[in-house]
């Protein structure tokens, strides 16, 4: 364990994070995939791969296309289902000493509730991140996150079934992200994480065909950071919930930018693919920033823009 910098500690509802740095679902496996490269316990939290009610094979290959300063993916929530998670994967992650958060997804309200109920029983999972914003599944996913009524309905149902920290992950693919944020805040969400990937596509001009099997996919990486910052800034001004900023964070400076516009914590996503130790390096980088600017506590700069 590295020396804990108490200035970095933040709270999201009942979860105490030793620092604001978390890792984003779908980019960090189940945590232990990164053990060779870094100390997992240096992180504030880890959001594991999306879990659905039943096994999902995901979309056909190709599922990924590199773009300028980013990438598109169309994985399609491949996972072995909530029972496999509870019976097998949970045992492999329950002793990792950080906030292990499960990303919960589904195609119907019933499926979201079923997964949330089962995860609620797991002692060492202090929170879930409700994924109402995946652009890569035919049913559900983003459909719930782009309509304020549907977003409210799913959060309401899950809130009844889940009594620990409930984070709702928002989609940027909406006219007004504030409207969605307010709708889920009204139904008892404890925190919002934003943004999920931007709905996009890529084309191979030589072959005259799309680069993804599904034609469209989700854009991530530094290319989306300005959109993500804007979303966090807007939502921070209009809601009271603690926010988790996500979108193109590649280094500590990027993380600080999200905190300045109102994020309590951040999630590192695509950057984990490029430098598997980056999340830990960002923790050190934030400490160094506080030293350099003589800041006593990370909360002193939160939302000052």
């Amino acid at each position: 364990m590295n020396n804990i910098d108490k200035r970095l500690e933040v709270t999201i509802k009942d979860m105490v994070l030793r620092n604001p740095v978390m890792t984003a679902s779908g980019t960090f496996g189940y945590g232990y995939d990164y053990e060779d490269f870094m100390n997992l316990e240096s992180l504030g939290g880890i959001v594991v791969k999306a879990t659905t009610g039943a096994n999902r094979e995901g979309n056909a290959y190709p599922r990924m296309a590199e773009t300028s300063s980013g990438m598109l993916n169309a994985v399609g929530l491949q996972n072995k289902g909530v029972d496999y998670f509870c019976n097998t994967l949970y045992n492999k992650i329950k002793d990792i000493n950080t906030n292990m958060i499960v990303n919960v997804s589904g195609s119907s309200i019933e499926e979201y509730v079923e997964v949330a109920e089962k995860i609620n029983e797991l002692k060492n999972i202090p929170g879930i991140e409700l994924n109402i914003s995946c652009p890569n599944v035919k049913q559900g996913g983003m459909a719930f996150g782009t309509d304020p009524k549907m977003a409210a309905e799913v959060v309401k149902a899950v809130r009844r079934a889940y009594n620990k920290t409930l984070i709702v992950k928002l989609s940027p693919n909406v006219t007004s992200i504030v409207e969605i944020a307010k709708a889920v805040e009204g139904e008892g969400a404890d925190s919002l994480s934003l943004i999920n990937t931007l709905f996009g596509m890529a084309v191979d001009a030589e072959k005259r065909q799309p680069l993804l099997s599904t034609v469209t996919g989700g854009l991530s990486g530094p290319a989306v950071k300005p959109v993500a910052l804007r979303c966090v800034w807007q939502v921070a001004k209009q809601t009271k919930l603690p926010l988790i900023g996500i979108g193109g964070i590649m280094n500590a400076t990027d993380a600080i930018e999200f905190i300045l516009v109102g994020a309590t914590a951040i999630e590192v996503g695509t950057a984990n693919f490029i430098n598997p130790a980056i999340s830990q390096e960002i923790v050190y980088g934030i400490s160094e920033y506080l030293d350099r600017h003589n800041i006593k506590n990370i909360s002193d700069i939160r939302g000052i823009i």
Binding site: G26, Y34, E57, G58, Y61, M64, Q78, N272, F273
Partner: peptide, 22 residues
Amino acid sequence: EHKMACGFGVCLCCVVETNIGN
């Protein structure tokens, strides 16, 4: 040889269809 984002098992982009699933 498949396109991959990470190379160490987390991105799930490089899947191949096998007799027992992706």
